[in-house]
Design a protein around this nucleic acid. Structure first.
Lengths: 338, 338
DNA sequence: TTTGATAATGACAGCGCTGTCAATTTCATT
DNA sequence: AATGAAATTGACAGCGCTGTCATTATCAAA
């Protein structure tokens, strides 16, 4: 049932080392030999044993996905993207959700690494935005790839996939301005997250570029949750200067804002425009459907995983950086200012 | 940095075999010895190497999660539940999404098993509902645990976690009937899924029990998606006999129904009551919030994983079965019939 | 104290593969 | 045909652990 490398070697009439070479796509195996081996491999349905490879060799055959994010859509997209890259490259994926605030994160990750050899880690915010943390991981002698917010990589520590939240935020805000809005509210995610910082920066820049003064009363701290959107919108709509539009920092907040508007009898988009961010499936399922910015999480994650695997393979110090700018998607939740 | 069993043995002044015994919680190690070993383990921060364990031993230290489900909330909940059980039992989790319709599923799973030793698989629908498939997996010599719909386990093939969709469906339907509804629409998920079959059965039984005749025009096939809910509701609302309530087979379908109602200018719950199923976070974020049945996916999955691990440990033929009945949660999308 | 049964420990082989290095083959040139 | 460098292949050790079986320590009862 379970063929070993020995069985293949015998059947192909070569040494196990040669089979090993073929399985690892090493050069310096004659084509003829390679064919013989592959034939035996197919005949026997042979799969190299991962445990043995890990134990005997120096290469790693797995990567891990580290995250702390309650957003199911985000996590699934990321995971699927990473899995796609893994599948293509024959890597295994270890899933590792953990609490960023916990004292034990590093310990946990260390344990994981000691237990299973891992080529590297895919880090998403907030982990990717903690330089000391990243450095400590690298000191553990594993590669890292970071997915993070910004228009340029902050350092040379690792390959990065940068999401240009600033630019995307400018287009969303500009879209609202183009619709005639002058009082635009902003409901942020966790203030410590770079994505919030960057989106806020884009918001402010768009306003400034259009000669609209920034009113701090229209800027609300939140967290990336529905409830936060409900509260934020309620608060904004009871300001002296009621905004005519709200830029919510993600789709969940936007959905919460929508909910609050309904609660207060405010019609969308007639009396109030609401924009989200992320283009989660969610944003197509609210009423009205959300104007948002498309953040292609799956692609981003697949990219990240590919960069990580490539780096771990080549052992180059060269840290590539990929860039994404979420694109505006106009739907029904934003309209002309009256 | 990376301590091996040898280092621990040396430091503790015992043989590696004794360390191994301690690490595996075997009996017949004196308490004194055990303490010495544990002290060394802590001192050195030792973690047994998974690859070596897998290679040397006969026990497995991982399970796999097999699924084919586009519902992000469902998958994440399941995964978190399984991870919780794994963490507690020191198991690793392999994530394996795949296409149920694909010819290659079995092959893929076979490859995975040959590659990584796996104690067993957690199967969710539709896989868990394919008896021949399950049998073939078991023939591959891996344990299986099935999460499935029904009020009693269909066979003795494996431990099961049964979700009593029938009973839950009766309570939802009864709730609608109690509100005075006589024309109740039903929008199903994929007709082949037992959950749809069971929920439909519950729906029909509740109607029958209350002396309401079953009108097949009010029963719509769908799939578990938002779009399907939109279409289904549109169709139902253009029947000769307009239903005054719709039981949607899951929250996504319900959200779609809500959306369709908005599109058609039908107010919820005044003109139409809509109920969902699953209690995904989603159901709290629609307007109005959905009446639904709480299906505790995370618990269910944790249970399933625990059963699987227990079975693989004890090597008993004894297949336990756990039962869950989703409970009605009344929110704002259902109201009195007028 | 000796005995015998039982509990506790250890020696050793080997899981299936890769890394190292040595042996052999190949092939373009002489 | 002989030569040598390069390409191709193989022998062998050993990764870190567990299973098997042999050995030693322990302790109640004689």
């Amino acid at each position: 049932m379970k063929a070993t490398i020995n069985d293949v070697a015998k059947l192909a009439g070569v040494s196990i080392k040669t089979v090993s070479r073929v399985m690892n796509n090493e050069t310096s195996v004659r084509q003829l030999t390679r064919d013989k081996v592959m034939e035996a491999v197919n005949e026997l349905n042979y799969q190299p044993n991962l445990a043995a490879r890990n134990l005997a060799g120096t290469k790693a055959y797995s990567i891990a996905f580290i995250y702390d994010n309650p957003n199911a859509y985000y996590v699934i997209d990321m995971q699927n993207g990473i899995l796609a890259a893994c599948k293509q490259q024959g890597f295994e994926l270890l899933i590792h959700p953990c609490q960023a605030k916990s004292e034990h994160v590093l310990e946990e990750i260390g344990d994981m690494i000691r237990k299973s050899r891992v080529a590297g880690l895919v880090l998403t915010p907030p982990f990717s935005e903690m330089p000391e943390f990243v450095q400590k991981i690298i000191d553990l002698d594993v590669d890292v790839v970071r997915i993070m917010s910004g228009d340029v990589a902050p350092d040379e520590l690792s390959p990065c996939v940068m999401v240009n939240d600033h630019a995307a935020s400018v287009s969303i805000t500009q879209h609202l301005i183009d619709l005639g809005h002058k009082h635009i509210g902003f409901i942020g995610g966790e203030a410590a997250h770079m994505s919030t910082v960057e989106r806020l920066r884009g918001y402010k820049q768009a306003l400034t570029d259009n000669g609209i003064s920034i009113d701090e009363r229209l800027i609300i701290d939140g967290e990336y949750s529905f409830e936060s959107g409900v509260h934020g919108a309620k608060q904004l709509m009871s300001e002296d200067v009621r905004p005519t539009a709200i830029f919510s920092c993600n789709d969940e907040i936007a959905a919460g804002s929508l909910f609050a508007a309904r609660l207060m009898g405010i019609s969308i988009p007639e009396q109030l425009s609401i924009a989200g961010f992320e283009n989660s499936p969610f944003s197509r399922q609210t009423w009205p459907r959300l104007t948002t910015a498309n953040q292609p999480n799956q692609k981003i994650a697949e990219d990240a995983a590919s960069l990580l695997i490539a780096k771990s393979r080549k052992q180059t110090a060269n840290n590539s950086v990929n860039y994404y700018t979420p694109q505006l998607i106009v739907r029904d939740s934003t309209g002309k200012s009256h």
